[in-house]
Nucleic acid binder design. Structure first.
Lengths: 340, 340
DNA sequence: TGACACTGCCAAAACGTTTTAGGTAGTGTG
DNA sequence: CACACTACCTAAAACGTTTTGGCAGTGTCA
């Protein structure tokens, strides 16, 4: 491998023109070369270790085979990994590669990064958020094919994929109902985001569906972290006629509930059942007993987003679709029948 | 923005040749254009929203301004985010962009992905692992500039950056010594990786430096997860003359130690002090009390790796360097003076 | 025999830059 | 007045592909 081998080298070695080599190697060549020559050329190419220069073919084809992935804070959440991996897997399978940029919270930086991606002639962009939220698209994107990952715009004009928050909550609450609970609390978030509203809705739906009364006294709203979860849980669990089960906005909140239970001498799941949301392995599997939780499908959303994006890029014009992916229940050890 | 504006459009609009435009816009143009014309051209370019096509300039310059980042399981660890972000930030600052691929554990897939990166003419590769380990470089890399991130090869022939495991352990143990502890246990890993050996070494160094006897009875080796940490801690804490402080291989292990302490009725930090390793926000900040821990510098390592890679690419030949980055102590609430 | 279609290959243009090697005035110099 | 020099600009080649529009040669059919 002294120097890069190009298509001319293959042509020379095979004794044909570069045109023929191109036709032989690309399916677009159709039937323009004799099968015999084609095979000969293929063999020579493999022999020389020829690999096409994608800068050149991208330039010629006006198609780089690169996708941009722009996200906000990649660093603060462990979800990023799963999303990126899902996206990358789907891209790889179709011969594309991912350029990732992350801009933190600075919209000016984000714009510059998007421009940079455009200079590299990305064929499309996955615009991702690390938690489900409404967004407005940056102007820079222009007419570039784009799909939203874990986010949606108000006008639904562009394809997006998010978790089915309502169904997720229903799944969680139903697991508790099935175990026999009738006084089920919810430790909700305060932020004005889709997850907050959707999950509350799902909680109410599930209760209603099973003839249980919705009692506002049984739901709290706090910051979605562990200390706040602990406080909320402590408060809820000390009310008269305490709930025997808790549906938590996130696994971090659930971890706070564990701490509250420990502080109050309540055993899990004998005295108190808990269901979380996220399936953050790091926490859910580490808690003792393991946390039963409903998983946010980050990997699947990543896959969906680029699959859809590539369909848009390669296929014909299609109407935007707003996809909601379902959130499976991951059972560990934090749900049991209610006490006595 | 009806159609992409190219350098010809700028030339036409400015009434000069494309050559002059190129010279005016690139610093390499030197003094070849009158300042006045240069400014005029710049203005016109900005006006038209001109942005150079990097496929074209990459093709011409034999330099794509793209760096490849290949990693193993991006998904299973929350460290990936910080590393990628560090790498991406450093790349962005120098006008480069990152292509990330991750191959899981399949070396065949990894090779194919590296070949794909090479087709895109990446200027260099950051070869990353998600935890510090020895690696052997894939053949495919050939002579491409490469630097290792959180990994090193046996022959030290290639630049790499890893955490200073020994110093990290010293820092952790010294914090405990400073608080007055003399019976300090260690919950170590079993895997045969640099972290395991380095941290044990650091633990011994710190003890020795302060005239404390190294006692093998006080160190365990187990899988580095929470349940195993719990078991190890339970065992260690029930021995006669139990340690009053524990240095844990990871924050997940430390979480197990918390659980063991709770099970034994030991309060943290009154009865037992704990120091972890990793500074996994998600766990360290969520534990109650917060976990004092020594941080692995993932972000900084990511930055270092691409900075070094770019120096190699842009600068003159330089000897490989093996960098070790230090691990600062992050104090929360799990360290106090020993009981009575 | 000539018109025509097919088969299998190739020359050359094009993609959008950068850079080399001049070219053209204008200004001194001998 | 020829000459060199400077200051500013430009034509054209090159980077490595893909694709259009051929062009020979070989049959086929009237």
């Amino acid at each position: 491998m002294m120097t890069k081998v190009g298509i001319r080298d293959v042509a020379k070695a095979a004794g044909v023109s570069v045109t023929t080599v191109s036709h032989a190697l690309n399916p677009a060549g159709g039937t323009r070369v004799k099968t015999e020559t084609r095979e000969h050329i293929r063999a020579v190419a493999k022999d020389l270790g020829y690999a096409p220069n994608r800068l050149a073919s991208g330039l010629r084809n006006q198609r780089s085979q690169i996708l941009g992935l722009v996200s906000d804070e990649i660093t603060t959440t462990p979800f990023a990994g799963a999303m990126i991996r899902g996206a990358q897997d789907a891209a790889y399978e179709r011969g594309y590669v991912l350029m990732v940029v992350n801009s933190g919270l600075d919209p000016e930086l984000e714009n510059r990064e998007i421009r940079m991606l455009q200079q590299h002639q990305v064929d499309g962009i996955v615009y991702a958020r690390m938690y489900h939220q409404g967004v407005t698209l940056p102007e820079e994107l222009g007419t570039l094919p784009t799909v939203l990952l874990d986010a949606a715009t108000a006008d639904r004009s562009i394809s997006s994929v998010v978790p089915d928050e309502v169904a997720a909550a229903e799944t969680a609450v139903e697991a508790l109902v099935r175990a026999g609970h009738t006084r089920i609390g919810m430790l909700n978030n305060v932020d004005d985001i889709p997850a907050t509203h959707g999950r509350l809705q799902g909680y109410q739906n599930a209760l209603g569906r099973h003839g249980l009364q919705f009692n506002p006294e049984l739901v709290t709203a706090g910051v979605a972290d562990t200390p706040a979860g602990r406080e909320s849980a402590l408060e809820l669990l000390q009310r008269p006629a305490r709930p025997t089960a808790l549906f938590c906005f996130s696994d971090r909140v659930a971890m706070g509930a564990y701490q509250a239970a420990a502080a109050l001498g309540l055993r899990i799941p004998e005295d108190l059942s808990i269901v979380g949301t996220d399936n953050l392995e790091l926490i859910a599997a580490a808690l003792w007993p393991g946390l039963t939780t409903v998983a946010l499908p980050h990997y699947e959303m990543g896959r969906w987003a680029v699959t859809r994006l590539l369909d848009d890029i390669e296929g014909p014009e299609a109407a935007a679709v707003q996809e909601m992916l379902s959130c499976p229940l991951i059972e560990r050890g934090s749900v049991g029948p209610p006490p006595d």
